[in-house]
Design a protein around this nucleic acid. Sequence first.
DNA 1: GCCTATAAATGGAACGTTCCAATAAATCAA
DNA 2: TTGATTTATTGGAACGTTCCATTTATAGGC
Lengths: 347, 347
Amino acid sequence: MASRAKATILDIAREAGVSKSTVSLVLQGSGLIRPETAVKVRKAIEDVGYVYNRGAANLRKAHSNVIGMVINDLTNPFFAEMAVGMERVFQSAGIVPFIANTAENPVRQEEVLKSLMEQGVAGLIVSPARGTTSGAFRRLEMVGLPVVFAMRRLPESRIPVIAPDNHRGAYLATAHLIGKGHRRLAFFGGSSDLVVYHERLGGFREACEALGIAKRDTIVVEGETSRKGGIACLDTALAAAEPPTAALCFNDAVAFGVMLALRKRGLEPGADFAVVGFDDVVEAQHYMPALTSVAVDSAGLGERAAHVMLKMIQSRTTRAEDHIGAVNLVVRESCGPDRHKGMGDAA
Amino acid sequence: MASRAKATILDIAREAGVSKSTVSLVLQGSGLIRPETAVKVRKAIEDVGYVYNRGAANLRKAHSNVIGMVINDLTNPFFAEMAVGMERVFQSAGIVPFIANTAENPVRQEEVLKSLMEQGVAGLIVSPARGTTSGAFRRLEMVGLPVVFAMRRLPESRIPVIAPDNHRGAYLATAHLIGKGHRRLAFFGGSSDLVVYHERLGGFREACEALGIAKRDTIVVEGETSRKGGIACLDTALAAAEPPTAALCFNDAVAFGVMLALRKRGLEPGADFAVVGFDDVVEAQHYMPALTSVAVDSAGLGERAAHVMLKMIQSRTTRAEDHIGAVNLVVRESCGPDRHKGMGDAA
DNA sequence: GCCTATAAATGGAACGTTCCAATAAATCAA
DNA sequence: TTGATTTATTGGAACGTTCCATTTATAGGC
């Protein structure tokens, strides 16, 4: 069972009666070797159960064909879908990407990045963990490794970013709520250590301002970006003197939490309180009621990020243009019908 | 910006005024070098922006510290959670696992396995793609690489398996339905090219037999293991002459689909038709109605698999015991109250 | 002061591959 | 036949590390 010492290119050479150089050439599919020789060598490869040692090869070649994908939270379907989108394009480029999860932990992220670099990756696509400091990627820049940020950006970094138009998405969603007749609005979930948070909150604020909602009629509740966070946000908001009648949530998970909490209070999402999510994960359309949400096409953005990475590697540069993906509001049932004016809203 | 040629151990040696061997010793944290020297070397490492070349090291060391996790479907939260469980234990062992997704595609899986092996992994945890042939892992066995299967097993393979007790889980769930008074039962979703399918269906069958449900009062509908599959299954089953009144679903996704389809027909899950899921993903408890499901503790099984792997590597063996994880039925609302006898069930 | 024992640092070979320059074999032009 | 050209094949150096056997420095015993 336990094989003898691992077979190398020399073992194959001996077996096939050729030189190691010939074997190497065959391995690389060079057209220089006579077809019959190639066949002979390939048979030997099969016979001895050879496995190529990419580490040894990279020692000379310098250019590896591994790409690392560093994801902040794989259990979030939103990021998982993005990762799968990336994988799709790498696959068709003949590259096997390795995924590593950081679980939103900057320390873990540091380890993961280090390990990936030591492994000699050709490039890195990163969705940075919350709380990542801008210094975390300096080492990567030093060695001139191509890096792309996906979905999230860092405050002051020159690394190219592929992300949805968060500002516009939030604006659209907020305008939708206002259009429904809501006059006291909430923004639920997320925390200010995320650039995305500021972008989305910025869109919310701008829409309120542009459409005549006074700042004192809005309430912003930070919270975990999870169902639990959403539940907490709603409880906080409804305890206010003049509670809101609608909320834009940082993401769909928060929105689900809000709807859950509404139900628990005997309120019907949509009819009694409008809620909009962000990201439009698959569950959104299956919820009761179906969730109105800002679709960002995570898989598409993942694909885009992968393409950018491939191009960077190919042109051996560490720079690329940012790409801001279009968003669109998918209206479903969670905001109910239009709200009648003056239905207890008179300030 | 673009750094000069990549720094090596020799550059550090020159910078610090020591030999390359000394640097190597420092890198490995050997106690043989004088602390002051170590400090000097570490400073040089920092200064030149050195990154360790693990490939070169493995050329001599033979023992790498990378472990590969090959997952059949990362977008399924069930498997994502398992992966995260594994990661947790590897992290505390100072190992960074690399995750690769096969998207249920055996061809892709083959590529992924090849790539991981070439990278020189120390071990592999695999949740095999549907339709994997038993030959796919022969090469791995040939080179004596430790491999563990997680969640799924292959028909005739000696590779150790960490999986939940599917048979018992299905038995419990079925008994629950029968105990509620149901007399015509369905098994929804999954397909027979999966061993898991036979295990779960086996539990269902055994429970029916043991508790007096005739085989002709059961209906088995294969289908995709997704919401869509669940919808299709229900439609098929309700078209039967004597339709079932309850269903055990292959997994939670199917169960969600079934509930959706029920609603679409104006039937209330729980009251009009009982449904039980399998896996107990997080969404299960948040659904309306909350889904009764068989909890399998995917994260826990992931951790277990990782431990087994670590032990295998440590004791340089390719064998280990299987581990069948306990399951338990989490009763929620999707089966409604007990069903009264003779309520249209008289066969 | 010398010898021995311990501590610290070192040079060289080896790991498995690729690449280059060189060789050997086959083909062609004259 | 001879030399030139093309086609196949090859040996050796190099890649960045580790490990072993040595060497060099430091301390201890007398």
